[in-house]
């Protein structure tokens, strides 16, 4: 039993990070139909910028805020410089643009910072908390709280605020949204900055546990993408559940079957879910227009 709890804790922690990355995918996908493969790089940037801000003498909370704001600005830059000029390009071309952006950001980070592994101090100490026979790091609680906080914040934003509803309207029907006076360009900018900031937050939260370096982005993007698809692309609830489920699957496989094949179990489950539910767990059934 303590064993199970231990795997559960680590699964939920990792899953919360996947969920944050998946939420970032969801926001951009909703606003623009683009799957942004640079999403993992946002998480990497968050961690790296925070690390270097701390080593430059900034207190940790300030460093975290700086990392999130700077990454948010980079997200806006990506939208303005690369996505907006390519408006109307085929979706595959847009995907290649985001992959190009991911490679560019990775290269730039390697150049500006370095190639080393870095760690951040944990937010509230490294003493593990005893819980139901297992232990959990205080930092894990921060990660889980972060994911839940972001999810609630987004939910309020999308259902309670005019701006949030404008983003939803844009995702439903671009042209109609434009006709009722929604500034599409602004919605896109908002989506990219929001999603970059959420990615950066994920990076800052997880760095004390998993460390970071310039090349951690692609793996996170892959898992976040898989989590978003598992839950059903475009659905924030799906992103949250997909992320946590993916994290749990990995932790359980690593604990009970084989740590080498932890990614395999996750993908096999995704294949099976998609086989029975081709739109993911929470995806809406779509019909083709002829």
């Amino acid at each position: 039993m303590p064993e199970l709890m231990q795997f559960l804790f680590s699964g939920v922690t990792v899953g919360a990070v996947y969920a944050l990355v998946a939420l970032g995918f969801t926001i951009i996908y909703n606003a623009s139909d683009v799957v942004n493969f640079a999403q993992g790089e946002f998480a990497m940037l968050g961690g790296m910028i925070a690390v270097f801000a701390v080593s430059a003498g900034m207190p940790l909370p300030l460093a975290a805020v700086v990392a999130i704001i700077v990454t948010g600005l980079i997200g806006i830059g990506l939208n303005k410089l690369a996505i907006e000029p390519a408006r109307g390009a085929p979706v595959v071309s847009l995907i290649i643009i985001t992959i190009g952006a991911a490679i560019f950001i990775k290269g730039a980070t390697k150049l500006i910072f370095d190639k080393q592994l870095h760690r951040l101090p944990a937010f509230s100490g490294d003493t593990p908390i005893q819980l139901m026979g297992a232990t959990i790091l205080p930092q894990s609680l921060w990660v889980i709280a972060g994911a839940i906080g972001v999810f609630i914040g987004l939910w309020l934003f999308f259902t309670r605020t005019l701006i949030g509803r404008a983003v939803l309207a844009t995702s439903n029907n671009r042209l109609a949204a434009q006709l009722v006076g929604i500034n599409i360009k602004w919605v896109m900018t908002l989506a990219f900055s929001l999603s970059a900031a959420i990615g950066a937050l994920a990076g800052v939260l997880i760095t004390p546990i998993t460390l970071t370096s310039y090349d951690v982005g692609i793996a996170l993007a892959l898992k976040g993408f898989a989590a978003a698809m598992l839950g059903g692309m475009g659905n924030p609830k799906g992103a949250l559940v997909g992320g946590i489920v993916l994290g749990l699957l990995e932790a359980m496989t690593a604990g009970y079957i084989s740590s080498q094949y932890k990614d395999a179990a996750a993908f096999i489950v995704i294949l099976m879910v998609l086989f029975f539910m081709p739109q993911g767990l929470f995806g809406l059934k779509s019909t083709d227009r002829v």
Binding site: G100, A101, I103, F104
Partner: peptide, 21 residues
């Protein structure tokens, strides 16, 4: 050397922005 990845990413983005097909 150092700029390899940046140039590669830049070329990918520029080609797709200006030559979408």
């Amino acid at each position: 050397a150092e700029h390899e990845m940046m140039v590669l990413g830049l070329v990918m983005m520029l080609v797709m922005i200006f030559m979408r097909e």
